[in-house]
Nucleic acid binder design. Structure first.
Length: 475
RNA sequence: GUCCCCAUCGUCUAUCGGUCAGGACAUGAGCCUUUCAAGCUCAAGAGGCGGGUUCGAUUCCCGCUGGGGAUGCCA
């Protein structure tokens, strides 16, 4: 058997669509798994909707996910002559014919047919007119056989097909002389020797028509594999309006590429009870045989869990580089690489579902001005804690060494001095004082990150806040 | 309307005639604990309905119901 050749053929939409991303991932994985080649082709036959910029965004999405291709990108817009050549050939052997039916008229006849209980397919008015090139403005239609099965093997859905009588003679060339999608894909897949056409199940119903084209061209069929749709919360096909369909948006929301890829690969494919798949695992294990047949609902919780899973494994330079843009957004300016920040990020790994969340959790380190959470201030910075904070602050100023160990010792001493206070009584007020909120990593680690000067300063501010409330009570 | 497809916990899925129907996420409870997480333990939670076939159906067949997709001079 010829070596595997798969392709990904997106239309340039300005971003990489979630469903397309999965199709790309599966096609890529299938080629890699079988030592084949992966071809990239841009389907830009609809000029109105295509631009180079929109195409670049699609490629960027692919790169971000970690997918690479061996050939291309080829563009259908650059293959017009080839389509024309094929069209001429089809016309010459009478597999196709010119049609001069006008749009409005066509629509009216279709509606009438539908109303009369018909199927609403082309009535074949020009089918036997044998119109020549001089017939004026015209489209070209494929002469689909009147009967017989237009069938094909589908690696996911099994043997599929439709009776030819259910399909009208479809237009394959527009009246402006350009080829339509259904013709272009077939010609491209043939010319590019694609062995496995892997694409979304929304193309499943179009395939019989394409089979008719293959036959008209007297060409062998590739293997088809239609992937069940990914649907949104609504249970319907993903829509730009309702759902987040842009891979770039997931990236911007702080999801890691490996998490998105892992999420996508499991949306429709499985390998026993396994859940964690890196790109390398995917190229090693992926197979069409284990792709399911029903639509999968894209829900975020699993993605979040995966994202946290991969974030937990991130460290050092890699971690820093990936959160950096998000840190700068929170900081509202440039963010320097410091040991304290590195330590904080490390502590935040298992507390963050996304990089965006991680950056948010680092806010108290990124900005000198604290955002105090009123509820936490009310609860923890009460007048009675002022003396505690004062002792702690004083102790910090003379602490010989600013380390978790030394801080722990200081806290123990202050707790003893105040009648054996529980650690929680001390930790929470301090936490609110130095971070502005009730949640953060361990208090000693937090203080170490904040640093002596800022800790002392923030404690001072907290003492003022607590005492101010005492005054308010008295007056 | 017509054609095509799909149907296991809330979600993603395993099962390829015989299982206490398994796992994961989410959910609830507990443990841990200076907060939040993380981690660990436990719990609850599924074969749409009706017919067949079979010694035996979630699994195979048919019908129904439900859902989805396609029906473009879009891809």
């Amino acid at each position: 058997m010829a070596s595997v050749r798969t392709r990904f053929a997106p239309s340039p939409t300005g971003y990489l669509h979630l469903g397309s991303a999965r199709t790309a991932l599966y096609s890529w994985a299938y080629a890699r798994r079988h030592g084949g080649r992966f071809v990239l082709r841009i389907e830009d036959t609809d000029e109105d909707r295509s631009s180079r910029k929109a195409e670049a965004a699609v490629l960027e999405g692919l790169h971000w996910l970690g997918l690479d291709w061996d050939e291309g990108p080829f563009r259908q817009s650059e293959r017009r002559d080839r389509y024309r050549e094929v069209l001429e050939q089809l016309l010459a052997d009478d597999s196709a014919y010119r049609c001069v039916c006008e749009r409005e008229d066509l629509e009216a006849r279709k509606q009438a047919d539908l109303a009369a209980g018909g199927k609403g397919i082309y009535d074949g008015r020009c089918r036997n007119l044998h119109l020549g090139p001089d017939c004026g403005t015209h489209t070209v239609r494929l002469r689909v056989p009147a009967e017989g099965m237009l069938d094909f093997d589908d690696l996911v859905f099994g043997h599929s097909g439709q009776d030819a009588s259910q399909i009208g003679d479809a237009i394959i060339q527009r009246s402006d002389g350009t080829a339509l999608y259904n013709l272009a894909v077939v010609v491209d897949d043939l010319d590019m020797s694609i062995t496995h056409v892997i694409r979304g199940a929304d193309h499943h119903p179009n395939t019989p028509l394409q089979v008719a084209i293959y036959r008209a061209l007297d060409a062998p069929l590739p293997a088809f594999a239609h992937l069940p749709l990914i649907v949104g919360e609504s249970g319907k096909k993903l829509s730009k309006r309702r759902d987040n369909v842009s891979i770039q948006q997931f990236r911007d929301e702080g999801y890691l590429a490996e998490a998105v890829a892992n999420w996508l690969v499991r949306l429709g494919w499985s390998h026993g009870d396994d859940e964690i798949f890196g790109l390398d695992d995917i190229t090693r294990l992926f197979d069409l045989a284990n792709v399911g047949r029903s639509a999968a609902r894209a829900e975020l919780p699993k993605l979040e869990w995966l994202d946290q899973h991969y974030i937990k494994a991130l460290k050092g330079d890699d971690l820093f580089a990936r959160v950096h843009p998000h840190l700068e957004r929170v900081a509202g300016g440039s963010v320097q690489d410091t040991p304290a920040l590195r330590k904080l990020l490390d502590l935040l790994r298992e507390r963050s579902k996304t990089l965006v969340e991680m950056a948010e959790l680092a806010r108290w380190q990124l900005r000198d001005e604290l955002d105090y959470q009123q509820k936490a201030v009310q609860k923890h910075l009460r007048p009675v804690v002022a003396p505690l904070l004062r002792d702690l602050r004083d102790g910090m100023q003379t602490l010989s060494d600013w380390s978790e160990g030394a801080l722990q010792k200081l806290f123990d001493e202050v707790a003893d001095a105040h009648g054996g206070l529980k650690m929680g009584k001390l930790a929470q007020p301090v936490r609110v004082a130095v971070t502005g909120g009730p949640n953060s990593p361990g208090i000693f680690e937090t203080l170490e990150v904040v640093g002596r000067d800022r800790s002392v300063q923030r404690l001072g501010r907290a003492i003022e806040m607590a005492e101010a409330r005492a005054d308010a009570h008295e007056s």
